[in-house]
Write a protein that binds this DNA or RNA. Structure first.
Lengths: 114, 114
DNA sequence: ATAATATATTCGAAGGATCGAATATTCCGA
DNA sequence: TCGGAATATTCGATCCTTCGAATATATTAT
């Protein structure tokens, strides 16, 4: 397989490789939400959400629709929803190990003050 | 959903967010390969492959088995293989747009000299 | 023991990602 | 037209990732 295809896939994963963007995608499963609604549900800075939406847009994981003052976002393709569902299954299957992983992450997070 | 779970998923995606690591995971679909075989098939620096394997190990996407001089790697869970299969479907489905995306990527790659 | 092979780790430089603050844009209503 | 609301973009500081080079570790063969 040519490297450009690996780069393409890696770029999709990269777009999903942030907790906030995962949260956005999960909120968009099966429904459309405005940038403002996402902002409210996630309780984060307006600029920050907008930046993350820009990343998802750039990789075409979401599409947007302008309606007057607002911009509504939705998933471009339900396949991504299937990917997220598989991740949930993966998580449940390895719950025990995952816990330990999360503990380590939390530790390192505490150590590095983030 | 608590943020720690989003962080967990994001970390898995992060582990997959590199062309070389995608290539490694695809080579490991359904079979076991030694670090050396991966190195040979990918035609990359030994240290580099080993570093990427370290990332995949840290997130437990692969498991390894020592056999004398060598270390054999395999996928920890076929669910990840399913994720990769979904990505292939996604790619095919959006082939046209993907081409354009790849073109843009290539362009920017050329521009930034990488 | 020593050398050779296979793999892993550490280091430092270079580039990429993320954040909040500030600013810009776009659209609607008064 | 002006003001306000919703969203997007830019900027700079900080942190994270990636790479090759060098070095370390572990295992087998001599």
């Amino acid at each position: 397989m040519p490297d450009s295809l690996h780069r393409f896939k890696a770029d999709i994963f990269q777009a999903l490789a942030h907790p906030t963007r995962i949260a956005i995608m999960e909120l968009l499963e099966g429904r459309e939400l405005s940038a403002g609604e996402l902002m409210e549900k996630l309780g984060m800075e307006q600029a920050n959400i907008s930046q993350h939406l820009a990343v998802l847009r750039a990789k075409q994981l979401v599409v947007n629709r302008k309606a007057g003052n607002q911009v509504f976002y939705s998933m471009r393709d339900p396949i991504i929803s299937k990917v997220l569902a598989l991740m949930r299954r993966y998580f449940q299957k390895h719950l025990k190990d995952t816990m330990e992983l999360l503990d380590e992450m939390d530790d390192s997070v505490l150590r590095s003050g983030r």
